[in-house]
Amino acid sequence: MLLGPSLAVSAILFTLGVVGVLLRRNAIVIFMCIELMLNAVNLTFIALSQQLGLDGQVFVFFVMTVAAAEAAVGLAIVIAVYRHKDTVNLQRINLLRG
């Protein structure tokens, strides 16, 4: 039921997240876009679990836990950077110098 549309929505959300990561320059906004990507994946899992059984729904819990752990560490790192640079704008932090 509604498998195709759900998968399409999650693909669109995931793409929006990717585009956001690539275009935005604020570390916090980039992190929000990454969370959007993870939640798009969660939607995929839930949509698939309609047909494939409960596994997909269990995975979602794992993904949420992992995302929470990542958020804790990531925001701490953002604060550490802010203390040094007084900004979380990646252009000033010189990301991807290559």
Binding site: F14, M37, A40, T44, L52, D55
Partner: peptide, 27 residues
Amino acid sequence: AEAALKYFLLGAFASAFLLYGIALLYG
């Protein structure tokens, strides 16, 4: 600190790709 931020953002970005890959393979 900068290294940690770069590693974190790109690492999390990559993990999200990996996870979507897992979801599609599962599907």
